[in-house]
Computed example of a mutant assay.
Amino acid sequence: MLTSRRSPTTGGWRYRVSTPTCRTRCRAPRSRPYRQCFSASSRPLPRRSRTSPPGLRRSRSPTSVSRGQDHASPGRLRDGQVWIGGSSVSPHGAAFVPPRAERVPAALEDLCQFVRRTDVPLLAQVAVAHAQFETIHPFNDGNGRTGRALVHAMLAHGGATTRATIPVSAGLLADTRSYFDALTSYRAGDLNPIVERFAEASFVGIANGRRLLDDLTGVYEGWTSSVSARRGAAVWTVLPTLLGQPAVTSATVQQITGLSQPAADQVIGRLRDAGVLTRAVGRQRYVVWLATEVTNALDDFAARARRDRVE
Rank of each mutant, 00 (worst) to 15 (best):
V227M: 00
V287T: 14
T241E: 15
A229N: 02
D299C: 07
G258M: 14
R116H: 07
F180P: 01
V115R: 06
G85F: 04
T237R: 14
A182D: 08
F114M: 15
G93Y: 12
E109T: 06
T9D: 02
D273W: 00
R103E: 13
I136C: 08
R163Y: 09
D273E: 11
P240F: 00
L45N: 09
P91E: 13
T9S: 03
R23E: 12
E311V: 09
T51L: 09
A302S: 10
R25S: 08
R230M: 09
A40Y: 03
G189M: 06
L122D: 05
V89S: 10
Y34K: 00
D110E: 07
L213T: 06
S61M: 06
P29I: 02
T51S: 09
D214G: 02
V195F: 08
P193M: 11
D79H: 14
G218Q: 12
P44Y: 14
N296H: 10
C26N: 10
P105T: 00
G232P: 07
V310L: 13
Q255F: 04
P54T: 12
T161C: 14
H130V: 01
S7P: 00
V276E: 13
G244Q: 07
L216R: 15
R210G: 01
T21L: 08
T224L: 15
N296G: 08
H152S: 12
A305F: 01
T135H: 04
I84L: 13
A233H: 13
T278I: 08
R32I: 01
A164M: 13
T224W: 05
V294Y: 00
R43H: 08
T224F: 11
S64Q: 12
D70L: 13
A234C: 08
L271F: 02
R230F: 00
T162Q: 11
F114S: 14
Y15N: 04
I268D: 03
R23P: 00
R100N: 07
G147M: 05
G147R: 04
P53G: 13
S169G: 09
R32G: 05
R30S: 00
C26F: 15
L2A: 10
T3L: 06
G80K: 15
R6S: 02
A305K: 02
W13G: 00
I136S: 05
A303R: 12
D299F: 03
T135V: 09
S178T: 15
S178H: 10
T118G: 15
R27Q: 01
T51I: 12
A94E: 06
R116P: 05
R211E: 13
A160I: 08
L108S: 03
R67E: 13
L242H: 00
I194Q: 05
N296S: 11
P105L: 03
S202F: 02
T10Q: 08
G222Q: 12
D190V: 12
G75C: 14
S169T: 04
S178L: 12
A251P: 07
Q125L: 09
L290R: 15
I84N: 05
L243A: 14
A201P: 04
A297N: 06
T51E: 10
L77N: 09
H152Q: 11
A251Q: 11
P105N: 06
T9G: 01
E196F: 09
V219W: 05
D215Q: 14
S41W: 01
A131T: 00
T176Q: 14
